[in-house]
Amino acid sequence: MILRRMIILINIIVISTFVWMGQKQHILVGEGDSPTLPLVGYQAPDFSLETFDGEVLSFYDDLLGEPVFINFWASWCPPCRAEMPAMVDVAHLYENEINFIGINVATQDGKNQAVQFIEEYQVPYPNLIDENATVSRNYQVPPIPTTIVIDQEGTVVFRKVGGMTKSEMIAAVKEGLEGKE
């Protein structure tokens, strides 16, 4: 009997604590900005990289305000090759609605091979060179391919490691267009 009462008491204390903390959290949410973390639900980290054409593209300055579909790739990686034709199709399909960006993880790739890859698949969107893998590290992308979709508010809404089918890409694009719910 004492054990049962003790358990009920502990439950009441723990639940009350979490409810109280939750109430205080609501106040904080109203005051602060969303923190930056490369995970779904958080503000995407900023980056600024050069494209293969020599143009510098910055996430916060050039891309924020519209949904962005980012694909980290390397030319030697079989899943990157497998998904690329579908990604090119989807990029054409949604070219006016979402910005497609490729980020070549240059520490794992050669520049000539990367250029050859872009030409081979006729990739229509800008591809950036992550020379020192700083963006990959910021976005915590050790395995490739990794795809991240960011909505127009700059919030990460989708993240997947590994090859994606066309239907998966379309679903991810739609998440980016709908934004954080």
């Binding site: 079989p78 899943p79 497998a82 998904e83 590994g162 090859g163 994606m164 089918t165 066309k166 239907s167 998966e168 679903a171």
Partner: peptide, 22 residues
């Protein structure tokens, strides 16, 4: 992935790569 893209049955190597999805 095969349910959503039945054409993948003709490229078994791609089926090895893909899994999951919506």
């Amino acid at each position: 992935p095969l349910f959503f893209e039945p054409s993948l049955i003709f490229s078994p190597s791609k089926l090895l790569i893909y899994s999951g999805g919506p």
